[in-house]
Design a protein around this nucleic acid. Structure first.
Lengths: 211, 211
DNA sequence: GTCTATATAACGATAGAC
DNA sequence: GTCTATCGTTATATAGAC
């Protein structure tokens, strides 16, 4: 007699697979880092076989890159859309950017992936290069645009634009990494920090008042 | 007859050993990270046996902690000596501190060790706790003292002191880590950056001029 | 029946154990 | 220093959709 109501061995779900694999990969990478994450485990968490991963991604590094892109791209797109259309005060634009960066820092796993880049990219140059081109450079390009816009409009002082961009993003990133590493020490309290950071940046960039 | 001018199989050099082992350990840790560094290799680089390491250090983590302490302690001592005695403008004191931090960031391996803490301390809580207590908290305590001093003297504005301390140190640390990770991208040029950073911090902290 | 998404199983490099 | 287990990767078999 035939096996009653047998389970299917697998289902074909071409559309959903990549997203499911990326979601599983994100969890595993964020928890274990790049080298220690096993594709077997990713496959299991995604409910597919290891080989299926290779149908959609060329390699482990390619999967990692796809995950980074998935998180970063829509946020940058949104930023750039605003940068292209906004025409109010640069200080407001900057505050919007900082809010967006806060959201990325506290609401996505991108900082965990950044940590992986810091920690392991010497062993895996491919992921470092991808991250540099698609996150670092693109992020800094956007910040630089805001700063240059403010300078051009006389709202911000003349300054080293590259350095100023670092002043905006580095405290946010490092505060996030610190909390991620040392736990929620009162010292690193994010709410107070982000408010103070916005104020600090605004003062650091403000044009001198004419006497 | 006595063996003529025999070479000694080993030499007792109780005084020098710890420093030599720490120097070797620093190189290996900085290159490979904590988990991947093998004490066998440290021993070889220091010209001693693995057992000798255990004569002077309780464990791998203890060796790591000793190295961190060796680098950090004299710098903090010097900072604190100045903080105890200086009585000029707080802006100058802050510039001195930033110069000192730049020196630590660019002239020591402490950033490489900080990277290890970020990357691996979830697997090795002992080294995280040591680093937190002897580097993070002590460093922030000193920065906070400078900021509070400036506020008390009316040179700096009232602000979130913890956040301000992060504004001072995080860009320095992160710029260093970024150069360490991505190589010497022109974007992260340290000379321009440190100059701009000092200016940025000074403006961010400056008391409002009374109208 | 054909096409292809998916699983199973094998391969080769490499790191870790003894 | 050798052996072995593990894991990224690839080749082949099979099952599901149309």
């Amino acid at each position: 007699m035939p096996a009653p109501a047998q389970e299917q061995k697998f289902q074909r779900r071409k559309e959903e697979r990549p997203a499911e694999i990326m979601a599983a990969g994100l969890r595993i990478f964020a928890n274990k880092g790049f080298a220690a994450a096993r594709l077997e485990e990713v496959a299991e968490a995604a409910g597919v076989s290891k080989a299926t991963i290779y149908l959609y991604f060329d390699s482990k590094a390619d999967l990692f890159a796809a995950i980074v892109r998935e998180i970063a791209t829509p946020r940058f797109d949104e930023m750039e859309r605003l940068l292209d259309t906004y025409d109010g005060p640069s200080a407001d634009l900057l505050n919007f950017m900082i809010g967006k960066l806060k959201e990325i820092a506290t609401g996505t796993e991108l900082p965990a992936l950044a940590k992986i880049i810091l920690a392991e990219s010497s062993n895996f140059p491919e992921i470092r290069e991808f991250y540099r081109d698609h996150v670092i450079l693109r992020g800094f390009a956007n910040l630089s645009r805001v700063i240059e816009r403010g300078i051009a409009r006389g709202e911000f002082r003349e300054c080293n634009v590259e350095a100023a961009a670092q002043e905006i993003i580095f405290p946010i990133l490092m505060n996030t990494l610190a909390r991620n590493t040392f736990g929620e020490l009162p010292f690193f309290d994010p709410d107070g920090f982000f408010t103070a950071h916005a104020e600090f940046v605004a003062r650091g960039l403000a044009a001198d008042r004419e006497a």
